[in-house]
Write a protein that binds this DNA or RNA. Structure first.
Lengths: 124, 124
DNA sequence: TACAAACTACGAAACTTTTCGTTGTTTTAT
DNA sequence: ATAAAACAACGAAAAGTTTCGTAGTTTGTA
């Protein structure tokens, strides 16, 4: 079952990835700082996400604790593949070119990508 | 005004990019081949897209002709930047790494990326 | 001429996503 | 022991997206 997070869900996941397991209040505080949001809005979203299996919920303490089910990098990979299919006709390397071209990367970042390329050629 | 295409809109744009300026019927035929869709569904979408400014409409002939307003690569860049912001905290090179890592690219494609990297380092 | 085919326009149903108010319970502080 | 604060649950409104039926017009053809 491949459940892609919606935009709002992704915002919440981002908080969970940064903070680790968190209560609704904690997620809400961080989110609300950037973007005025109601407490129950975040609560409801987290409940829905728990139903969908995007997060797990620990009900031990009164304030339930939510944890992202998938690692950030895993979700990122899914999102990238989704975009590759929908907008790049399946060509991942074209997406990569766009990503690289769109913003100037630092020399370190460029070097990192070169290393990845090296590995990929070695592995073929 | 930055109007991001929705999923359905992107599917239609993809057809327009491939075919060039097209009538509703032409778009519908191509779309319907892959994915059963009603004619008026495509019509309505194109009307909405015209309102939003995603496409232009030429009403000269009876069958109106629709044209994508933005080039494919431009829209791709927007989508990539959007994803970079929403899921990669603004780090384009991380997105690029994910894209490269997710699928095996051909040696030609890898070479192409190396050339891009070369240019970027030269240009800095 | 008149019937069918090809079109557009438009409203609205069906879904999905987002937001929030209200209710009721447990905990904390006075 | 009360009152206030902190919670979860839930329903449903609001907003956004997708799909399509119906009506009405123009064009092609028998």
């Amino acid at each position: 079952m491949e459940t892609r997070p919606t935009n709002s869900e992704l915002e919440i996941l981002t908080v969970l990835w940064r903070r680790g397991p968190s209560s609704v209040r904690e997620v809400h505080e961080e989110l609300n700082a950037r973007k005025q949001t109601g407490y129950t809005t975040v609560l409801k979203l987290l409940q829905i996400m728990a139903e969908k299996g995007l997060v797990t919920r620990d009900e031990e303490s009164r304030a339930h604790i939510y944890t992202a089910k998938s690692a950030q990098s895993e979700t990122q990979t899914n999102l990238v593949q989704d975009l590759v299919e929908r907008a790049f006709g399946g060509s991942a390397h074209q997406l990569a070119m766009h990503a690289l071209g769109s913003k100037k990367a630092s020399p370190e970042e460029l070097a990192e990508i070169r290393r990845l390329l090296d590995e990929m050629e070695k592995g073929s």
